[in-house]
Every structure is written in C-alpha cells, then in structure tokens.
C-alpha cells in the first residue's frame, strides 16, 4: 500500500517526533514543527505517536492513494479536498483507492500533518525518520518530497471500510468522533508565553521592557530552523562576545544587528548569540502554526507556570488518546 506525491507543495517532508541523542555531535533534534498535531494525527490512526507523518506547509500539495486506506489530517494552513468533497481535519478518514487529495488555501494555521494507519515505511537514520535537509538525513534520501515520490505503508494487507464510519456517496468514510483541536492558530495577533532568557539581564533596559510589551511580525525569512522577527531592535547594555553554548527550540536569540530569532524544530545545537527569552515549550506548536506576516506578542511568565502549562498540555494529550476508539 502506498501514496504517490503528485505535487509536493511548499517544503513537504517526512517528520516524526525528532532525532534524540545526537546533539553532542551537532545533529539537531528536528522532527515535526508542531509535534502536538503530528502526535494527534498518529493517535487518530491508531499508530505509535512517533510514526513518520507528512508535514505540509501551507497549501499546494496533492497526492494519490494507490489503495484504499485509513488516514488523518491534523493541523492548519490548508483545506483538503477529494474532488469537491472537503475532508474534515481531526477525524479518521477512509480514502477509496485512486483518490487524489489536494490542499487549497486556508486563512488559519501554517502546517498540516498526514498520518496513515499503520504508518509509512521509512528507514530511520540516526534513530529517526525526520528529514533534516541541511545534512541530508532522514525521510526520503534526506530531502523534501518531490513529484513522483511513492511512500509505501508498513501495513500491506488490503483493508475494508469500517461500518462504524459515516460513509459518503463518493465512498469516502468519516469517523463520527473527532479530537479537539489543541492548537488554535488565529490570523490575528498571536500571544505566546515566554520566560526571561539566560542573558536577559545583559540587555539594556529598553530591550528588557520591549520584549514583553511590543508586537513583532514573523518575517518571511523564516523556516524550520528559526523565525526571524521584525519590530523593535534589541541591544546589550555592553557589547560582549558570548562563549558559544547549547541552544534549542524556543530560544529567542538576538543577532549582532539587534534582530530577534526564535529557534524552531531544526535549531542548531550550539549558538553564540545572547538569549533574551525562551518560549514556553507548550506554546511551540502554536508558533509552528503561525505563518510569516502574522504579529506576535510575548507574555511573561515564570519558570513554574511554564512547567505547569507543559504538564497541562501533556495530560490533555493523554485524555485525548484514551478517548479515541479505533474501528475494529
């Protein structure tokens, strides 16, 4: 069983929950930008949470199911169609053989995740299927998906549509249940929670004030490695060269020109820029669903509140997992 990529769209790639254990060799964690949506897509399909999924950025992707199969799409940034039939997100879908799913523009969100029941048959590289293009690791030959790529499934046996699905005349099946959307991206100003960074005290007083009070625009110069922000410039009280140390997803570092960059999934392992703030890990999925051009603000919270927000998200995910029932 397989799907064939007809149009790869913008930077579609295979991702899982990241490549762990190799940062000491300079290999980034990577993985899905919005790990909550990627996890949900797998949960809906009854997969292990770390199965590889297709990460699609905005719209313009199309692919064909070569056999009938179950799948799920979670996230944002596009609407999905088979012909004129719009496919709902966050539900288990039964896709008839030779159906072509295409994605079109949607005002909300930025990334959507396609999981197939049983998972894609992707060889792991350094313990992960995640595509990291700068080093050519993971996914399909370490690159983004291209027209003609065939992604085979681990599951080989032909499936039947479950009678528990709502069947449409077109043969498409849709689960009656759906999972809550845990990552609510809006096209308006997005507020993310942030904690003072390790070098916060080294910045001048206007920088210290502006980081938590002014608005920033996510620049078009943003990618899986980091989001550049446009807005107020930042400066240290005294210009000093930092000794390079570990950085990771969520770190807000400030370049010599004074521009803040939020490090995202493909963040480098080591950096040498001062770090004015770090984003609460529970808000990274929301940032991943926020597209260039959108304005964001940072709301200051403390370490404990940040940790509590992460725990809350974790228990929500666990509750959702327990609530999903697969058709038998």
């Amino acid at each position: 069983m397989s799907i064939t990529i007809l149009k790869p769209g913008m930077m579609s790639s295979l991702q899982d929950l990241g490549r762990w254990g190799f940062q000491q060799f300079g290999v980034p964690i990577g993985g899905a930008m919005d790990k909550v949506s990627a996890t949900l897509a797998n949960m809906i399909c009854g997969n292990d949470e770390n199965e590889a999924v297709v990460e699609m950025t905005l719209h313009g992707t199309s692919f064909m199911f070569n056999e009938a199969a179950y799948c799920a799409i979670v996230g944002g940034g596009c609407k999905a169609f088979i012909g004129d039939e719009e496919l709902p997100f966050n539900r288990l879908l039964w896709i008839p053989a030779f159906s072509i799913i295409r994605t079109s523009a949607h005002a909300q969100g930025c990334r959507s995740y396609l999981a197939v029941s049983g998972g894609f048959n992707i060889k792991k590289n350094l313990g992960s299927a995640s595509t990291y293009t700068p080093s050519g690791i993971g996914g399909l030959d370490g690159r983004n998906l291209a027209t003609g790529d065939m992604l085979s499934f681990k599951r080989e046996q032909v499936l039947q549509a479950s009678s528990t699905l709502k069947m449409l005349p077109s043969g498409i099946g849709i689960s009656h249940w759906h999972t809550a959307n845990l990552v609510e991206a809006t096209p308006n100003v997005v507020m993310v929670h942030a904690i003072k960074g390790p070098e916060f005290d080294l910045f001048n007083s206007s920088s210290q004030e502006n980081i938590f009070t002014s608005e920033f625009t996510i620049s078009s110069q943003s990618n899986r490695m980091g989001y550049r922000l446009e807005g107020k410039k930042f400066a240290l009280e005294q210009q000093t060269e930092m000794v390079s140390t570990a950085v990771t997803t969520g770190i807000v570092q400030v370049t010599h020109e004074g521009d803040p960059i939020i490090l995202m999934a493909d963040a480098q392992t080591i950096g040498g820029y001062p770090r004015i703030a770090r984003i609460c890990a529970a808000d990274i999925p929301l940032l991943a669903q926020t597209r260039p051009g959108v304005n964001i603000r940072f709301k200051e919270i403390g370490e404990e509140e940040s940790s509590n927000r992460c725990k809350e998200l974790n228990s929500k995910m666990k509750r959702l997992k327990n609530g999903i029932s697969m058709p038998s």
Binding site: I195, P198, V243, V247, T248, T249, A281, S306, S307, C310
Partner: peptide, 29 residues
C-alpha cells in the same frame, strides 16, 4: 544552573574557552 527549555537545564562551569573548564564539562558528561 539555568533552563534553556522546560526540559533542558544548562550547567555553566565558566563562560570561557579553557582546557581546564572543558575537562570539567566532559567529566560531568
């Protein structure tokens, strides 16, 4: 000690480039 993530803690022995400090880092690892 400081956090760079909700699930990552940095132990900074000294913000300097020296063999002695780096040996301490590797010993700790």
């Amino acid at each position: 000690f400081y956090n760079i993530h909700d699930q990552a803690i940095t132990i900074e022995f000294a913000a300097e480039i020296s063999d002695a400090t780096n040996m301490q880092v590797i010993a700790m690892q």
